[in-house]
């Protein structure tokens, strides 16, 4: 077991090294550029004059990343704040939309799971609303909510509600019949049954739904912020795209991936806490 772990780490590092090396070789090649009038060359960018690839090398990205890590919380005006602050804005938005979705999805999921009638009645709505791309809601949200910040939160809410709702309903509906029957024999009240029997039994499924939701919410926030702009890591990507700074875009991609992984790990830990041996 121990040696398998070590070996897998070694393979991971090797893969990473190979990738970085290939990347480095791929971007350092290129011609020395054609002859140009120096007057004209002064007005042109290095991609045009030196034939340099617009793609940065891994070293460039590493340096930029280090620059952001060194000074993550600077504020140089409304439209230029540090990457750390941008991440903070994004995480706050995700948290707000996600908690709202939880507040709606968990009770509603319980209701659907426990009542076959509601389950059938709500099913068509869920089936129609679930596959809608969350960003398609954005124009409608901007028009009705009349606030871009709240609209972004609404989009997070609407995209993270479905996995939680469906998993909760599924988990609640599939609690083992024997346990429900035991509760019934003991004449446990509905509310008590819900909290002491069904909730612990369905918890692993519910947490799995929550884990899927947080992943989707983090995917969507970047796109939503690119659309409404202002603050957040999505805005950062857009702003650097604007400047065609691929280096900063790649840096942002790495950071987004890292934060997404952290969020996922938190929910995975929560999942471990609620699992039980049968």
């Amino acid at each position: 077991m121990r040696s398998l772990e070590l070996r897998s780490v070694a393979v991971s590092i090797m893969l990473l090294m190979t990738f970085l090396l290939a990347w480095h070789l791929a971007v350092t090649g290129g011609s020395s550029g054609q002859k140009m009038d120096p007057e004209y060359a002064k007005l042109m960018g290095i991609t045009a004059t030196q034939g340099k690839s617009a793609m940065p090398s891994p070293v460039d990205v590493g340096l930029t990343l280090w620059g952001h890590i060194k000074d993550p919380f600077y504020v140089r005006g409304t439209n230029d704040v540090g990457l750390g602050l941008q991440l903070g804005y994004s995480i706050l938005r995700v948290a707000a939309g996600y908690l709202l979705a939880m507040a709606v999805a968990l009770p509603l999921g319980f209701l659907i799971g426990m009542s076959p009638l509601m389950s059938r009645a709500l099913d068509p709505f869920i089936q129609v609303l679930k596959p809608i791309s969350p960003l398609a809601w954005m124009p409608l949200a901007l028009y009705t909510i009349k606030d871009s910040g709240l609209s972004a939160i609404f989009v997070i809410f609407i995209c993270s509600i479905w996995p939680m709702l469906i998993n909760t309903a599924f988990g609640v509906a599939n609690v083992r019949k024997e346990w429900i029957n035991v509760a019934r024999t003991l004449e446990v009240g509905t509310l008590r049954k819900a909290f002491t029997v069904i909730l612990p039994a369905a918890a692993p499924t519910i947490v799995t739904g929550m884990r899927i939701s947080i992943g989707i919410a983090w995917l969507v926030i970047v796109a939503a912020e690119m659309l409404v702009g202002g603050t957040g890591v999505g805005y950062f990507v857009w702003n650097e795209w604007n400047n065609l700074s691929i280096t900063n875009v790649i840096t942002a991609i790495l950071v987004i991936g890292f934060v997404g992984m952290l969020l996922d790990q938190i929910l995975a830990r929560l999942g471990h806490l609620v699992t039980y041996p049968e």
Partner: peptide, 20 residues
């Protein structure tokens, strides 16, 4: 005055109509 960079014309329009 705070000058706020915005992502596109439709967003500028909507944010101005929203009084943001």
């Amino acid at each position: 005055v705070e000058v706020v960079k915005t992502a596109g014309w439709a967003v500028v329009r909507d944010k101005t109509l929203n009084k943001e």
